[in-house]
Nucleic acid binder design. Structure first.
Lengths: 220, 220
DNA sequence: ACATATTTTTAGATTTGTCTAAATTTATTT
DNA sequence: AAATAAATTTAGACAAATCTAAAAATATGT
């Protein structure tokens, strides 16, 4: 197990993220867009990953992960998210700075390292963006969460995650003092632009549709 | 700065280690032996590193590091040793297990990561094998140390480092309960095989020449 | 100092991962 | 259902990093 290259692992991760919505096969172009490469490179790689038994690939029909491919992808994601926790909790990175470094750290190969890191961090369940962390066996809790943009008026919940974890979005949240764990109540929706008037803790704020479509809440 | 590949960094590190004795140029074969590759691969790489201004290379005459190459090598070594401290102090790896993982971690590129890690660890001066850790600017303390094998009879010192940090040697030391910080006194040298009778703390032990030639002491 | 041995370099091939441009397949439109 | 558009694959090239085998340069021994 686990003689996958840096590059192969990135493809597996992309397929996992793109495919986790439906059980549909993932298209070549979607992968190319996701990892910023050319479609022809994706085709090449899919043929190699198929040889290795990591994906199911049918020409022109897209790919899906095999069980082995899924396990491999989950182990990369586990590592990525554990490192993110480490960077924030132990080294005091801010949540918008961790992604690029974690992208490198996730490829370090040492089972012992990952398991001891997990223990060192107290077996965290969620990373700094609210995404759940798979355990050694690839199991991870799925919470029921809803996008703020999809809530009915007067509903309220706790902010438990972000959909977009780009630095620019996270910095916006910092500037507006919105953090994981905050209580958010939807006061009213503006029909014209779908912007929302919300209560974050005690503060009234107006949030655009784009912002609201990237905040996950757990309903109260 | 610092668009060096994983592989280039390994060559720079090897040249640094091989060259730090004298100021002599390092031979192609020595590098090949050190990083377990073919001499022809070394030649190729030397030409590439020379292009990049990282080494001074003259055909058939060996190589030495330029200032830039030296800085780069020192930054890799700094990272390697800081990660080793992290693995031992925070994750409780034993000192014979850290090398392979640190070989991977040393290539992670993030200045912020290294500096925060350094701070998190309390700006350690030495790694778990007693080697000194360069600071941000590449400065590192050089202590005067001597190999146990070179001591005169009845001299004593504190064990402050190992020359060979292979797992097999370190495990031998563990089995014989010899650790950094122990006080060691040389009682007598056996002429026939150069083995030594020593006092480690309160315990009398006989050590072979090979062992004694890999233990560094600070004289008392 | 000449012959031999050793070291180093060159030449040519291979693998991985990428690209561009052209060809092919699938999807969409009218 | 034919024509057009979009997506996908193939073909061929390239760079990095490695290898083997042969050639060239340097070192060594008597």
């Amino acid at each position: 197990m686990s003689n996958t290259s840096h590059s192969e692992e990135n493809y597996l991760k992309a397929i996992f993220h793109l495919g986790s919505e439906g059980t549909q096969a993932v298209s070549t172009n979607a992968i190319a867009r996701n990892i910023k490469t050319q479609p022809s490179s994706v085709t090449d790689m899919m043929q190699r990953l198929s040889e290795k038994g990591l994906v199911n690939y049918r020409k022109y029909k897209g790919v899906s992960l095999t069980d082995l491919g899924r396990d491999t992808a989950l182990s990369i994601i586990r590592k990525h998210r554990l490192w993110e926790v480490f960077l924030v909790e132990k080294l005091h990175f801010s949540w918008d700075e961790v992604h690029d470094v974690a992208e490198q750290l996730e490829h370090i190969k040492s089972e012992k390292l990952v398991d001891l890191l997990d223990e060192h961090l107290g077996f965290p369940q969620y990373d700094p963006h609210g995404d759940s962390i798979p355990d050694k066996d690839g199991n991870y809790p799925s919470r029921d969460k809803q996008l703020l943009s999809q809530l009915p008026e007067n509903a309220q919940g706790l902010c438990i995650g972000v959909k977009d974890s780009s630095a620019s979005f996270l910095k916006y949240l910092d500037r507006n003092k919105i953090s994981l764990g905050d209580k958010i109540k939807l006061l009213e929706r503006e029909d014209f632009d779908n912007s929302l008037l919300v209560l974050v803790g005690e503060r009234k704020l107006r949030l655009s549709q784009q912002i609201a479509a990237n905040l996950y809440l757990k309903l109260l």
